[in-house]
Design a protein around this nucleic acid. Structure first.
Length: 990
RNA sequence: GGGCUCGUAGCUUAGCAUGGUUAGAGCGCUCGGCUGAUAACCGAGAGGUCCGGAGUUCAAAUCUCCGCGGGCCCA
């Protein structure tokens, strides 16, 4: 009974993977791989929660397999690696999906539909594609606990978030502010800066140069300030014009059609003028201060201070525009600030849907961006337009609904992150970033300039902001738990209350100060705060504190680069505000998956590759290996389906074939590694060499993985499998496996190949978990049931330094270079390798001689020569083809032939033909044949002389001259021409 | 406009941190060879302004600066 199960020469990876998935499910391999490390050092991971209301795409798969690789590796290294899945379930993306489904698009419509029903729909919708996510996650082999995930809409999760907000509130960092904030007019809510960052697009906007007429009673000629804007609609809210106090401004006379006009603008911006101009006067911006001008449009009410005058401000630049900046406090952050500072007025002619109010009758109800055209017409009519054009710039759009954002003065709740800037920076110091440039580059810069976090959302489906305000005295309450809510509520609150709107809106607190009702602020919070709370909220901290205490901070997180200011930031922000500690110690930022042309994959472009197609044609291991080898993962990957196939062919097939080779011959030979203990130092040089290479590889792979240089690790592994193991070790050692009788060297070969394959399997297990499991099952479990039940339960190999023989590796490398040189020498002479030659002479230094001499047999074999000589100094070169190998090393190949050599070559050709015929007929490797031959005299003579050799090589029981009497299925005949000689060969199957 | 990042053969890329052989592979192409594990492999050939320019240096794909182009992030 053979020890190993036979395998097909060609692997069916899809079927194989399916079988492995079933095995893992049956044997609970994942759970056991985690549990058996309990009590060991922890390696803490936090899953960045995906939103399951869309299908997973290749980018998600990339992060999932990278997470999986690292976590499997760390587990095999002996760490206790918990892996809790998570789902991000709140926020605008979800609401928008539901709105689409219901065919509605405004907040009012949602309110009419009913918040209760609406939120129920939201809750249903977030798991719409859960099945697809779970399937893809399992299919690609990502081991994560999806049976007990954290879900951001869970009451427990919300309770933890509430607790954290109260901590922030208690520190006085949570405040209500009136600020100009990015605002989505469609979603009718404020967006945070990191959300805005998601949605910049290049767009063409109008570019208008507008004349503001100065109130200049003495001078009969009208004088205008020339200002520039790309948002004409904001002109309706104009309150002031700003100039730089120190820059030089000029008064110029310009032609305007048939007429002339006198304008004021910055000297450095004169090139915006059309045609010729005459400079009338020069002064500085300061000289313009406090000049009053006439309103462009006398519609919107202006509240508060004095307006419509020139102010000076440092933020005015001369890089574009006219050096005169139009100021509308309702629509710009700096505008708002400067107006407040200078005690100017305020005017808000636009409502929260981004439409003009009835203060502006000609534009009432019109969406501001749509009004631009009309406004330009109005400017033209009243002669206020100097010129207009188009302007290409990037402008923020809502990251989910794609509406252009407006900057709009709103009341919002903020976390005072700017007050925590130093803490953020200090905590960032404790984090290792991969790639490292992010630490002080993109991320560090962002922290340096951190702004307060606009936390509140005037929406429905989200964690409700846990602030209650007394309707009469204005006292604020922040509630940290359900228990506290029950204590403070006027009405009775059940323990099982759903903390979402609208239920929470009905809970009224009794004001401790005045006894009046305190009502909850209607807002919900930014869902990025939800996911940023994952390190503690996934464990329901502090209501249950055990898990959190043991799992904070995380050792490792990884997501794509766009999370720099998304999750990577929200984690750090929340954690800094509450614990003043970094929430993760190592963060690996991955590049994006682009399509074959280098364009980011997105639904709207229709260039998203369907991952299920890949699972169904190439398999998970091929996809994983491709992704890992596609270059540094910190950079973008151009996704190529054909490259996946190439990887499968080259790498997985070569690995399979190495394994197949072993199993095939081990089965024939009934080889078992059991009880065979041959110390490595007793084995042949090539055995010691591959063992040495394996240990070097092990060291390199571990080094690379510890630095998250995954592409380096896979490159080393691939080189080893293809070049060292398959193309050199196995090819060179083949004959040792073909020896029929018991033989020490054969055992060494088997044992070595066995040990290398098993170790390799473990090294590769985190990368390609399916094929390695399959191989392990046959090679290890097939031999002994006492072994661990899965490769993924094993320890990761560690290098045995005592088995690394650098000199031997060097020598082998030199030999392979000599082989290359010898082949070139043959090729130059037009003599094929099958033709034996007399000798090769290597002229080299003492060191090289010493190195290569021990492996001379390999050189002799590879170059098919009868002898190898090493000499110092130059040898006679007649009849020798000469090839330079290295400096000081030259190879001389004797290319002279005699009859014996020619005969030997002929015999090898014949053997080759017979082997080819065996293969044509798919003969078993052990099947015996009988050979009949006819042909030229020279051929017959050669065969007779070497018949024993031919028989041994081709497993023939006899070889005879003449034609065969066998018929049909029993015989295979063919005519050959070798050089100029004819030969007829027949093989009979016996 | 600013920050970060990338740019190497038709395509995918290694090398760049720490400057030092003739810039190395794979796919594809041409020719030849090897092969009883291999859809693999080996040799030769064609294919490179290492994005361009300047600088530092005995020496630059590698370091610096300035451009150009792509990407991401921000204004």
């Amino acid at each position: 009974m053979p020890y190993f199960r036979s395998e097909p020469q060609k692997a069916d990876f899809l079927k194989l993977e399916e079988g492995i998935l079933a095995r893992w499910a049956r044997e609970k391999t994942f759970e056991r791989s985690v549990d058996r490390r309990e009590g060991r050092d922890k390696f803490v991971f936090v899953e960045g929660p995906p939103t399951a209301n869309g299908l997973p795409h290749p980018g998600h798969i990339l992060t999932r397999v990278v997470k999986d690789l690292v976590l499997r590796y760390k587990t095999m290294r002996g760490f206790y690696v918990r892996r809790k899945a998570g789902w991000d379930t709140h926020g605008l993306p979800v609401e928008i999906e539901v709105e689409k489904e219901l065919g509605i698009s405004t907040k009012r419509e949602i309110e009419i539909y009913g918040i209760e029903k609406f939120n129920r729909k939201c809750k249903e919708s977030v798991f719409r594609y859960e099945k697809e996510w779970v399937n893809a996650t399992k299919r690609v082999g990502f081991w994560i606990d999806m049976d007990d995930p954290y879900i951001t809409f869970d009451n427990k999760y919300i309770e933890s978030v509430w607790w954290s907000l109260k901590e922030i509130w208690k520190k006085g960092l949570l405040y209500k502010g009136h600020k100009v904030v990015p605002f989505c007019p469609r979603c009718e809510t404020t967006l945070s800066s990191h959300e805005v960052a998601q949605g910049y697009q290049d767009v063409e906007d109008p570019s208008v140069y507008v004349k503001f007429k100065l109130k200049h009673e003495k001078d009969p000629e009208p004088l205008y300030l020339l200002a520039w804007t790309t948002t004409p609609w904001t002109l309706l809210g104009n309150i002031a014009l700003a100039v730089h106090p120190l820059h030089r401004y000029v008064k110029v006379r310009v032609k305007e059609g048939a007429e002339e006009a006198v304008l004021i603008l910055a000297e450095a911006r004169l090139d915006v003028l059309e045609g010729e101009y005459e400079i009338l006067e020069q002064f500085t911006g300061k000289d313009l201060e406090d000049l009053e001008y006439e309103r462009l449009f006398d519609y919107a009410k202006v509240e508060g201070g004095k307006s419509h005058k020139v102010i000076t401000a440092d933020f005015v630049t001369l890089e574009e525009g006219t050096g005169v900046v139009h100021i509308a406090p309702a629509f710009g952050e700096v505008d708002y600030e400067v107006c407040r500072e200078k005690k100017l007025g305020f005017s808000q002619p636009v409502n929260s849907e981004g439409r003009f109010t009835n203060e502006v009758p000609p534009l009432e109800g019109m969406f501001v961006k749509d009004a631009d055209k009309l406004i330009i017409e109005m400017l033209k009519e009243q002669g206020s337009l100097y010129k207009e054009g188009r302007y290409l710039h990037s402008y923020p759009f809502c990251w989910r609904c794609n509406s252009p954002l407006l900057y709009y003065a709103r009341e919002s709740w903020f976390i005072a992150m700017s007050a925590l800037r130093d803490n953020l920076l200090a905590n960032n110091e404790k984090i290792n970033w991969y790639p490292k440039h992010l630490k002080y580059g993109r991320f560090g810069n962002f922290l340096e300039n951190i702004e307060d976090w606009a936390l509140s959302r005037e929406r429905f489906w989200g964690t409700p902001l846990n602030i209650w305000i007394c309707t009469s005295c204005g006292k604020q309450y922040c509630v940290a738990s359900i228990e506290e809510l029950r204590e403070k509520a006027k009405n009775s609150v059940s323990l099982g209350i759903d903390l979402h709107r609208p239920y929470i809106d009905d809970v009224v607190l009794k004001c401790e100060e005045c006894g009046s009702d305190a009502r909850r602020v209607k807002d919900v919070i930014d869902c990025w705060y939800d996911s940023g709370s994952a390190p503690f909220a996934q464990w329901h901290y502090p209501f249950e504190d055990e898990e959190f205490n043991q799992n904070f901070p995380a050792d490792f997180i990884t997501e794509a680069i766009d999370q720099t200011r998304g999750w990577f930031y929200s984690l750090l922000g929340v954690s800094t505000a509450i614990f003043d500690a970094p929430p993760y110690l190592n963060v690996l930022s991955l590049g994006h998956i682009l399509d074959e042309k280098g364009v980011k994959m997105s639904k709207s472009k229709g260039n998203v590759v369907d991952i299920n197609d890949i699972f169904n044609t190439d398999g998970a291991d091929a996809l994983r290996w491709y992704l890992f080898t596609a270059g540094p993962l910190t950079e973008d990957i151009r996704f190529s389906v054909s490259a996946i196939r190439e990887k499968q062919n080259k790498f997985l097939n070569t690995l399979w074939n190495s394994y197949f080779f072993f199993v095939t011959y081990a089965t024939i030979d009934n080889f078992s590694p059991k009880g065979k203990n041959i110390p490595v130092e007793k084995r042949s040089a090539i055995d010691r060499w591959i063992v040495s290479r394996l240990n070097t590889l092990t060291k390199d792979v571990i080094d690379a993985l510890e630095r998250f240089e995954i592409h380096v690790a896979v490159r080393k592994l691939e080189e080893f499998v293809i070049a060292d193991l398959s193309n050199w070790y196995i090819r060179r050692s083949r004959r040792r496996f073909w020896i029929v009788e018991e033989n020490f060297d054969k055992d060494c070969a088997y044992l070595t190949l066995y040990e290398v394959l098993v170790a390799l399997c473990k090294l590769l297990a985190p990368f390609v978990p399916f094929i390695t499991e399959h191989i392990y099952q046959n090679m290890v479990r097939g031999v002994s049931e006492d072994e661990l039940e899965s490769v993924h339960l094993c320890d990761y190999p560690t290098p045995d330094e005592s088995l690394i023989e650098i000199e031997l590796e060097d020598s082998m490398e030199l030999v392979s270079r000599l082989v290359e040189a010898g082949r070139r020498a043959r090729s130059d002479a037009g003599i094929k390798v099958r033709q034996p030659l007399r000798e090769v002479v290597v002229v080299c230094g003492e060191g090289e001689k010493e190195k290569a001499a021990s492996l001379a047999g390999i050189l002799q074999d590879e170059l098919n020569v009868h002898g190898v000589k090493f000499e110092e100094g130059v040898a006679a070169a007649e009849n020798y083809n000469q090839v330079e190998v290295d400096e000081g090393t030259t190879l001389f190949l004797d290319i002279s032939l005699d009859n014996t050599l020619i005969e030997e070559g002929l015999v090898r050709d014949i053997v080759r033909r017979i082997q080819g015929m065996r293969k044509d007929r798919d003969l078993e490797y052990t099947a015996k044949i009988r050979i009949m031959y006819e042909g030229d005299e020279a051929v017959k003579e050669a065969i007779k002389k070497f018949q024993d050799y031919i028989c041994a090589e081709t497993l023939a029981v006899g070889i005879e001259e003449g034609s065969s009497s066998a018929k049909g299925e029993q015989i295979y005949e063919k005519n050959w021409k070798i050089g100029k000689k004819d030969i007829h060969l027949a093989i009979e199957f016996v």
